[in-house]
Design a protein around this nucleic acid. Structure first.
Length: 465
RNA sequence: GCUCCCAUCGUCUAGCGGUUAGGACGUAGCCCUCUCAAGGCUAAAACAGGGGUUCGAUUCCCCUUGGGAGCGCCA
């Protein structure tokens, strides 16, 4: 009988939910679901300066949108100060901490000097000498890192050793008494019973410090799995410089949440040749064994492809809702029988909901917005006669379905000795305003007789004047 | 600078000693075609380099090179 799995995602609320953070959250979520364990959400807001309630909201929103439901929390570190104080006292009693009176500027100065001298940049531990003597000055509480080596057995990296000489006496409590990250993480993960710490590779170097703290506290050390990072096109760590990096920005660009989830899952993880996974499949097939160890570049082209894939599978209802966020869709129009056809034809032509909205503007708005170039190229005098004849044809028809219109259209073509493109393109401009659209007969059918005639008339008038 | 991590097509990756090194995105060409897509078919495209180990290395070990991350009274 193995212990139940308990994992956590612990973002700091200093901005939107980042793509990289979302991936970390996803892997934790999948691991929890896969092992029927619990997924804890914890907000690391010990930095009072940079944490904001807006950011907390944004992160929770992003998580919900992606469907990464948590089982416990959100817990806030800002509300757990007594716990930290308590643990700090324990460490003090055990003799693991000492007061450091060095000023931030001095420390920074020394670090620069060390860097220049080619030395590792680390605190030299000089205040250890002061143990016993209490000065009347502000101080931080530092952890007394013992000599030796700490080996961590990472689930993804294997055994990694860290010589304690590389680890400085880290600050556990600031001069204002507030606890710092490495300390609170250990207290929280321990208190919350976290069994597996799955987080970004960037924390690998923090791990030995934390392991030392677990041991000093005399509490069990969880298992660790450090995920490869997500990089930008330039292979640098994904950051604002790379443009859209927040989950909400993808939402705003018209991506489906599951496309983002599927895409994120496939950076660093694989299951044979499979590319498309439903959420259930992800949970069923996810495992740490197939998580790679090299960082992956965020490839938006592939995300777009996946997004279109899911758009193609989406229901009319869902798509209409999605489009409505980018376009004014009247309830009336929404009930238009042409909607289904519009959506059917646009699914193959849209990579995002936003793109789909733009492409369906001709259908949802009353007037056509014309592309100038298209108008000047196709609205010429020589189409006047064909347009008028076409109008007569349309007027004579009741049913505007492709089956009915197409033969009549072709009849007219041969009567006028015109090629398909010669009439279809000008007509396309008349009906949708530009040179690209779904098939011309599909456009005619979805618009219906009334609107087709109206738009054709408008075009004729434009050419005449 | 120091420490740690990483290394298969441009990108995401499969591979877990013996393969014609597979798939996907993207790219190119062809087909389809009223435009644009979608779709179908085809093509180009990779084991960073050097040493070992082994009958045999993409696969295991070492070095080099390259890339990444971390070195805060941020998290």
């Amino acid at each position: 009988m193995t212990d139940p799995v308990k994992v956590r995602f612990a973002p700091s609320p200093t901005g939107f939910l980042h793509i990289g953070g979302a991936r970390t959250a996803l892997f934790n979520y999948l691991y929890a679901k896969k092992h029927r364990g619990a997924f804890v959400l914890r907000v690391e807001d010990t930095d009072k300066e940079r944490s904001t309630p807006e950011a907390v909201e944004a992160i929770l929103d992003g998580m919900k949108w992606l469907g990464l439901d948590w089982d416990e929390g959100p817990f806030f570190q800002s509300q757990r100060t007594e716990e930290y104080t308590k643990r700090l006292k324990i460490l003090e009693e055990k003799g693991w901490v000492y007061r450091c009176y060095c000023k931030p500027e001095e420390l920074e100065e020394r670090r620069q000097a060390q860097k220049a001298a080619g030395q590792p940049m680390k605190y030299d531990g000089r205040c250890r000498e002061l143990i016993g003597k209490e000065l009347d000055q502000p101080y931080t509480l530092r952890f007394k890192v013992p000599e030796g080596v700490t080996e961590i057995d990472d689930l993804l990296r294997g055994k990694v050793q860290f010589d304690h000489r590389e680890i400085e006496d880290l600050v556990l409590a600031r001069s204002d008494g507030s606890p710092t990250y490495n300390f609170v993480v250990v207290v929280d993960d321990s208190d919350m019973g976290i069994t597996h710490v799955i987080r970004g590779d960037d924390h690998l170097n923090n791990t030995p410090k934390q392991v030392l703290l677990y041991k000093a506290l005399g509490v069990p050390v969880p298992k660790f799995a450090h995920l490869p990072l997500i990089l930008g096109q330039d292979k640098k760590r994904l950051s604002k410089r790379h443009g859209a990096t927040s989950v909400q920005s993808y939402r705003e660009m018209g991506f489906l949440s599951h496309a983002v989830v599927n895409f994120l899952a496939r950076i660093g993880w694989s299951h044979g040749d499979q590319e498309v996974f439903s959420k259930e499949e992800l949970i069923e097939k996810f495992d740490l064994d197939h998580v790679g160890s090299s960082a992956g570049v965020f490839n938006e082209e592939k995300l777009l492809w996946l997004n279109q894939h899911y758009i193609k599978e989406s229901s009319d209802e869902f798509l209409l809702d999605g489009i409505s966020k980018f376009l004014d869709v009247s309830p009336d129009r929404r009930k238009d029988p042409g909607c289904a056809l519009l959506l059917r034809t646009l699914r193959d032509r849209s990579q995002t909901l936003k793109e789909m909205a733009e492409k369906s503007a001709f259908f949802f708005s009353e007037s056509v917005s014309f592309d100038e170039k298209a108008v000047s190229k196709f609205f010429k005098a020589d189409v006047l006669d064909p347009f008028r004849k076409l109008k007569q044809v349309f007027e004579s028809l009741e049913d505007m379905s492709e089956d009915v219109v197409k033969p009549r259209f072709q009849e007219l073509l041969s009567e006028l000795d015109l090629k398909m493109g010669k009439l279809a393109q000008p007509l396309r401009v008349a009906l949708v305003g530009g040179t690209t659209s779904p098939g011309i007969f599909e456009v005619i059918e979805m618009l219906g007789k009334e609107r087709v005639l109206k738009r054709l008339e408008t075009a004729i008038k434009m050419i005449e004047s």
